[in-house]
């Protein structure tokens, strides 16, 4: 075992620039994925915040009896998506309008009749604050006889959804490109190491070392590089996060499980890149 460890670290010493390059590319691959992960994470939190304001408002036909409205209220509350329903009577709506629209206070106070309809404000549960569910609820409510008009912010919900998806896709594509580059660079490092160590490998075979024993230092090396790349990626992500936090806006950072996930990805990347190229190149020696 000690031989395996020694051999693994020998290549760091013999090809330091290539080893560092492998670590940097793994780091960049995961950094980019992490960056878009951060964007998605913060978007998600932002969405949750505005999501609390996602509301389907049903304006009731004038003259709808309050009993009917209350029956509808109970009915809507049983929808699986619905968190709460808020009944606003026409009088309440007028009071609210007067408070909020101070410029028009005079106008509203002069009115002989109340021009505002009563309404039901429907709030959705956290898992359902997306375009689909909003539409579904709106559709069902529109079936009510007394529903005069239904309003929901479908446009901006769709836009937020789209932006989040685009961020995720860009992150994956760019990350995959860097991952591919890192696999290729690890492959080159391993090929060079194998050529440099052809003599040692030949002697190991001659004295009866097994193939898996000969492979092990390379795999260990890949795992170490992957782990270091993962740690570097988390560090870079943290630097960006700090920068944004100080200069632009209050953002949040990955939790421990995300950080471990990034490092684990690095380890997997290093390991599989090594397995792949060791298999290929050891045959040639």
């Amino acid at each position: 075992m000690s031989l395996v460890i020694r051999e693994a670290f020998l290549s760091f010493r013999r090809a330091p620039s290539l080893s560092i390059l492998s670590i940097i590319t793994i780091g960049f691959a995961l950094f980019v994925v992490g960056l878009f992960g951060l964007v998605a994470l913060n978007f998600k939190e932002a969405l949750e915040e505005v999501g609390e304001r996602v509301e389907v408002v049903v304006y009731l036909t004038r003259g709808t009896p309050e009993t009917v409205a209350l029956a509808a209220y109970d009915d809507i509350l049983t929808f699986p998506e619905v968190e709460s329903v808020d009944f606003v009577s026409a009088d309440e709506a007028l009071v609210e309008a007067r408070e909020q629209l101070t410029e028009f206070q005079g106008l509203y106070s002069d009115l002989a009749t109340n021009p505002l309809p009563s309404s039901l404000g429907i709030k959705l549960k956290p898992g359902f604050r997306n375009e689909e569910s909003v539409r579904a609820v709106a559709d069902r409510v529109s079936g009510f006889r007394f529903a005069e008009d239904i309003q929901f912010g479908d446009d901006w919900i769709a836009t937020l959804d789209r932006v989040r998806n685009i961020a995720a896709i860009i992150g994956l594509v760019v990350g995959a490109a860097f991952a591919l580059a890192s696999i290729m660079i690890i492959g080159t490092t391993i090929r060079m190491t194998i050529i440099q160590r052809a003599r040692e490998i030949g002697i190991m075979r001659l004295v009866g070392a097994t193939d898996s024993f000969i492979r092990m230092p390379f795999l260990l090396e890949g795992v170490v590089k992957g782990a270091l790349g993962g740690v570097a990626a988390v560090g870079l992500n943290y630097a960006v996060f700090e920068l944004v936090n100080r200069t632009l806006l209050q953002a949040s950072f990955f939790g421990t499980e995300h950080i471990l996930l990034i490092v684990a990805f690095g380890i997997l990347l290093g390991f599989f890149a090594s397995v792949f190229s060791v298999r290929r190149h050891l045959r040639a020696v």
């Binding site: 031989l3 190991m204 024993f213």
Partner: peptide, 8 residues
């Protein structure tokens, strides 16, 4: 020693 180490 290498011959011994390489064979575990």
């Amino acid at each position: 020693a290498f011959a011994l180490e390489a064979t575990g």
